[in-house]
Amino acid sequence: MKKDIDFSPVKDVHVVIAKEEDVWKVFLINRNSNKLDNVMITSRGYGETKTETQKTSVLRHMIPYIDPGEYALVEPIDESVFHLNNEYWVSYFIEGKVFDKKFIFVPDSIVEDNLTFIEELQMKGILHD
């Protein structure tokens, strides 16, 4: 059962939403000294306006591994969902031990003013840790 699994704290793994030319993309960066195995990511958007609840489809991604100091493209992301909470639930294994964390970009946090240079990607983005 889930309560029997020891979920260790996630360290040095980051979700980044970066802008490359005019296209926004989501990346996962491994700043760990260990390889991440069987990386599973679910992404979804959700939120409310004054009149309705909005949500996107849940997308699931599988990345076999990410080496130390490397990154992987998760998905492109459309600007039309930036007014929603954009959630990325990341799970992976290091040496057989499971790690799990939700990264949530709150509404309207994905804007040009919040971009900083991300060394690994050699582009500007918003780093969530």
Score class of each variant (00 low, 15 high):
residue 17 I to G: 00
residue 32 N to L: 02
residue 107 P to A: 09
residue 91 S to W: 05
residue 12 D to S: 05
residue 89 W to L: 14
residue 1 M to T: 10
residue 2 K to R: 15
residue 5 I to R: 13
residue 83 H to G: 09
residue 28 L to I: 11
residue 77 I to Y: 07
residue 5 I to W: 12
residue 45 G to C: 04
residue 106 V to Y: 13
residue 42 T to C: 06
residue 37 D to I: 03
residue 95 E to N: 15
residue 107 P to N: 10
residue 109 S to G: 07
residue 41 I to C: 03
residue 9 P to Q: 07
residue 119 E to Y: 10
residue 23 V to H: 12
residue 4 D to G: 08
residue 32 N to H: 06
residue 122 Q to I: 10
residue 108 D to M: 11
residue 6 D to K: 09
residue 62 M to W: 11
residue 62 M to L: 14
residue 54 Q to E: 12
residue 67 D to F: 03
residue 56 T to H: 05
residue 65 Y to A: 03
residue 37 D to N: 08
residue 100 D to M: 10
residue 36 L to D: 02
residue 42 T to R: 09
residue 104 I to Q: 09
residue 90 V to R: 02
residue 48 E to V: 13
residue 69 G to N: 02
residue 103 F to S: 02
residue 16 V to W: 01
residue 33 S to T: 09
residue 116 T to M: 10
residue 91 S to E: 08
residue 92 Y to E: 00
residue 82 F to Y: 11
residue 56 T to G: 06
residue 63 I to K: 03
residue 92 Y to D: 00
residue 72 A to Q: 04
residue 11 K to E: 15
residue 81 V to T: 10
residue 68 P to S: 08
residue 92 Y to L: 02
residue 57 S to T: 12
residue 109 S to L: 06
residue 36 L to K: 03
residue 30 N to D: 04
residue 84 L to P: 01
residue 119 E to N: 13
residue 38 N to S: 07
residue 28 L to R: 00
residue 108 D to E: 12
residue 49 T to F: 06
residue 8 S to D: 08
residue 41 I to S: 02
residue 9 P to N: 10
residue 74 V to T: 05
residue 31 R to E: 05
residue 124 K to N: 15
residue 74 V to H: 00
residue 106 V to H: 13
residue 35 K to H: 01
residue 60 R to K: 14
residue 127 L to I: 10
residue 82 F to P: 05
residue 98 V to I: 15
residue 16 V to L: 08
residue 83 H to S: 11
residue 69 G to P: 01
